[in-house]
C-alpha cells in the first residue's frame, strides 16, 4: 500500500508539471506584458522596450521560457514579476494566508457537513432534515461572493450594536497591530472568522448532501440488519457499522470538494481583502504576468493533488477492499 501511494505521488509530480505548463503557455500566448510599457506617454525608447523584452525572455519560444522558469522553481526561484519584483518573496506569505483560510474552511466544512448529513439521514423527512436540505440547496445555488457580501451585510449591525469591531471585514490582520502573542492571535482570529464561514457554508452544504445519501444507503443495508440481529441496539449498530462505511464515498468526494473550495477561495479572498493566492491570481491577470499565473497554478495543482492523494490514503484506511497488498 505504501509503495502504491509513493508511486501515486510520483505520478502527481508529472501532473503538476503538465498543469503548470498548460497554464503558463496559455498565459504567455494571450498576455501582452509589454503593453503597459508601450502605451506609456511619452513612448519609451525602443531600447528600453527591447531590454524589458529580453529580461522577460520574450524573444524565446514558450516551452523554452517555461523550462527556464521551471528550472528556477526547482531551486526555489519563482522568477520575477513584470515589474521586476522577485515572486519568491511573496510566495510563502501568500500561500500561508490562503492555506489558513482553506484548511480552516475545509475542516469546519467536512466535520459539520458529515454530522449534518448523518443527522439528516437518521432523521429522514423530519423538520430538521427538511431544514438542512433547504439550507444546502440555498448554499449550493448561491455563488460564494454573494454569500461573502451577505455575511458582511448581516454582521455590520452586530458590530455597530456592540460599538466595537467584534469581527473584521477586511484584511487578515489589523495594519500596524502591536501586542503580545495572545493579542495578535485574537486579532487574527477576529479577521479569520467571517471569510472562513463564507467558505465553510458552501462546504457544509456540499458534504452534507452526499453524506446524507451515503448514510441512507447504509441505513437500508443488509449488514446493518445483521448487526442488529446479533443483538446490537440500533444506535450502536449505526455508529459501529454504519458510520464508517458511509464515510467511504466521502473520501473520494474530498478530492473534488477541495478543488471546488480553491476556486471559491479566489473570490472570498478578494471580498475580504486577503492577500492570498487567489487575490494574486487576479493581480497576475491584471498585470499580464505569466510567472504569477504559473506560480498560483502550481500552488493550486499541488493542493488539489495532495488532497487527491490524501483521499486515496483515507479511502484505503476506511475500506479494506481497496487495500493493495
Amino acid at each position: 500500500m505504501v509503495r502504491f501511494l509513493l508511486r501515486r505521488l510520483l505520478n502527481y509530480v508529472v501532473l503538476c508539471l503538465v498543469a503548470t505548463f498548460l497554464a503558463y503557455s496559455l498565459a504567455s500566448l494571450t498576455f501582452r506584458p509589454l503593453s503597459t510599457l508601450q502605451n506609456r506617454q511619452p513612448p519609451p525608447p525602443p531600447q528600453t522596450i527591447a531590454a524589458k523584452s529580453a529580461e522577460l525572455n520574450l524573444d524565446q519560444p514558450i516551452p523554452r521560457r517555461f523550462l527556464t522558469w521551471a528550472g528556477g522553481v526547482v531551486q526555489g526561484d519563482f522568477g520575477n514579476t513584470v515589474v521586476s519584483a522577485p515572486i519568491g518573496e511573496q510566495v510563502l506569505s501568500r500561500a500561508g494566508t490562503s492555506l489558513r483560510l482553506f484548511l480552516a474552511g475545509t475542516l469546519i466544512g467536512v466535520t459539520l457537513g458529515v454530522l449534518i448529513g448523518v443527522a439528516g439521514a437518521v432523521r429522514q423527512y423530519r423538520p430538521s432534515d427538511y431544514l438542512a436540505t433547504l439550507f444546502s440547496f440555498l448554499m449550493l445555488s448561491t455563488p460564494v461572493f454573494v454569500v461573502g457580501t451577505l455575511l458582511k451585510v448581516v454582521w455590520l449591525p452586530v458590530n455597530q450594536a456592540a460599538g466595537t469591531q467584534i469581527l473584521y471585514f477586511s484584511g487578515e490582520v489589523t495594519a500596524g497591530f502591536q501586542g503580545t502573542f495572545t493579542e495578535s492571535l485574537v486579532d487574527r482570529l477576529q479577521h479569520l472568522v467571517l471569510p472562513t464561514v463564507a467558505i465553510a457554508l458552501g462546504q457544509i452544504a456540499f458534504y452534507s448532501r452526499y453524506q446524507r445519501s451515503a448514510m441512507l444507503d447504509v441505513l437500508g443495508s443488509d449488514f446493518l440488519r445483521t448487526a442488529q440481529a446479533k443483538g446490537l441496539t440500533r444506535r450502536r449498530a449505526l455508529f459501529r457499522h454504519g458510520l464508517r462505511t458511509a464515510l467511504i464515498p466521502m473520501a473520494t468526494l474530498f478530492a473534488f470538494g477541495f478543488g471546488l473550495l480553491v476556486t471559491g477561495g479566489v473570490f472570498t479572498e478578494r471580498i475580504f481583502g486577503w492577500f492570498g493566492m487567489g487575490d494574486w491570481l487576479i493581480v497576475g491577470v491584471q498585470q499580464q504576468d505569466a510567472n504569477i499565473v504559473a506560480t498560483v497554478t502550481l500552488f493550486v495543482a499541488v493542493l488539489v493533488l495532495v488532497s487527491g492523494w490524501l483521499s486515496d490514503a483515507l479511502y484505503a484506511a476506511l475500506d479494506p477492499r481497496v487495500r493493495i497488498r
Binding site: 443495508s221 443488509d222 449488514f223 446493518l224 440488519r225 445483521t226 448487526a227 440481529a229 457499522h241 464508517r244 462505511t245 467511504i248 476506511l318 475500506d319 479494506p320 477492499r321
Partner: peptide
Amino acid sequence: FQDPLSALTPI
C-alpha cells in the same frame, strides 16, 4: 439472512 454477499459489514 438471504443474501450473504451483503449481510456482513465490509469493513
